[in-house]
């Protein structure tokens, strides 16, 4: 009896020990895998630093982005170079404005366009794709045919058409980018939904009479989040590229606002006069941020995609 009791006690202890071990969720596993990926971690840090720069930079700036430094205005190429003494850490632009502050402003706007654009794409694309995939049949084929048609339109041209007609403003840029950016997302989400729909838990939900809307909200969308997260991080640089492209042409963000594309365009236009810093500083931030987004996206895909494990 005593021996048996002892045994039971031990078993009890063991059981309580086992129960103390935390369950490993998909997201926990993914996080561990993600942080093992060096490129992704470095990128995450870089991106964090860029964000920090755009928020804390103004504290260190001696000039605001709208002030004109009249003392260098006459001869930018010899006086407007980057220096700590004059307070123009990145030099000045063609109009004698402080490039450090301009780059901060551009970074903020470009990142905002990227993130907001991706957010619109995620929300609209996920709902659209999940609906099409879940209902299937005729609804699906009509909805996806619409996506096909919209996708084969050269959207950059339509976007510029929109900007010309309704005026060039950041709001219009958001609307225009939002209109076209969700298409890929909708396709990817639909494909995933088709496979999730056949899972037993969805079948179970249908049999106990859960409404379609609730099934999509509670069962389909949470299981899509992995794919959506990966694709969203890859969408952000895509949006930034689109915005920069349009701003490079002078059709996007308007003065006094600026963005990476607009700054690169300015720098590219004036580099013939020997003011190379006007091109290189914005280009540097543009390149490292895009790199970071791409590597984070890759890292997330490796972490969340069970196929490659």
């Amino acid at each position: 009896m005593i021996i048996l009791n002892k045994k039971f006690n031990e078993i009890e202890k063991n059981i309580s020990k086992i129960q103390k071990v935390k369950g490993r969720s998909l997201w926990h596993d993914a996080r561990v895998r993600f942080f093992k990926n060096k490129a992704a971690v470095v990128s995450l840090t870089t991106l964090f630093l860029v964000l920090l720069f755009s928020f804390l930079g103004p504290i260190f700036a001696k000039w605001s982005n709208e002030e004109i430094d009249w003392s260098v205005l006459g001869d930018i190429s010899t006086l407007g170079y980057p220096s700590i003494e004059t307070g123009h850490y990145f030099g000045t632009d063609e109009l004698g404005r402080d490039l450090f502050s301009r780059v901060i402003q551009g970074t903020k706007i470009s990142l905002m366009v990227g993130i907001v654009g991706a957010l619109i794409a995620v929300v609209v694309g996920t709902i659209y794709g999940a609906t099409a995939g879940y209902f299937g049949g005729r609804i699906d084929s009509i909805m996806m045919r619409i996506v096909d048609i919209l996708m084969s339109i050269p959207y950059m041209f339509v976007l510029i058409l929109l900007l010309v007609i309704f005026g060039r403003s950041i709001l219009m840029l958001f609307i225009g980018i939002g209109l076209v950016s969700w298409l890929d997302m909708a396709r990817i989400v639909r494909g995933q939904t088709l496979s999730i729909k056949k899972k037993e838990y969805v079948e179970a939900a249908i049999t106990i009479g859960v409404s379609h809307f609730t099934i999509i909200r509670r069962h389909i969308i949470p299981n899509l989040l992995g794919v959506v997260a990966v694709y969203a991080t890859l969408l952000v640089p895509g949006m930034i590229l689109t915005e920069s492209f349009i701003s490079f042409l002078g059709l996007g963000v308007q003065e006094p606002n600026t963005s990476w594309g607009a700054l690169i365009s300015e720098g590219a236009g004036t580099m013939r006069y020997g003011t190379l810093w006007q091109l290189l500083f914005p280009l540097f931030f543009f390149v490292i941020s895009l790199f970071s987004f791409f590597f984070i996206g890759d890292g997330l895909r490796d972490a969340l995609d069970p196929k490659d494990r």
Binding site: S244, M271, L279, L290, F294
Partner: peptide, 22 residues
């Protein structure tokens, strides 16, 4: 191929002009 992802045409064009022209 990884680095060319962040070198779209509007970045390549000024860089090329910088190198080959200037």
């Amino acid at each position: 191929s990884v680095s060319a992802q962040v070198l779209p045409n509007f970045v390549m064009a000024p860089i090329l002009v910088l190198i080959f022209t200037l």
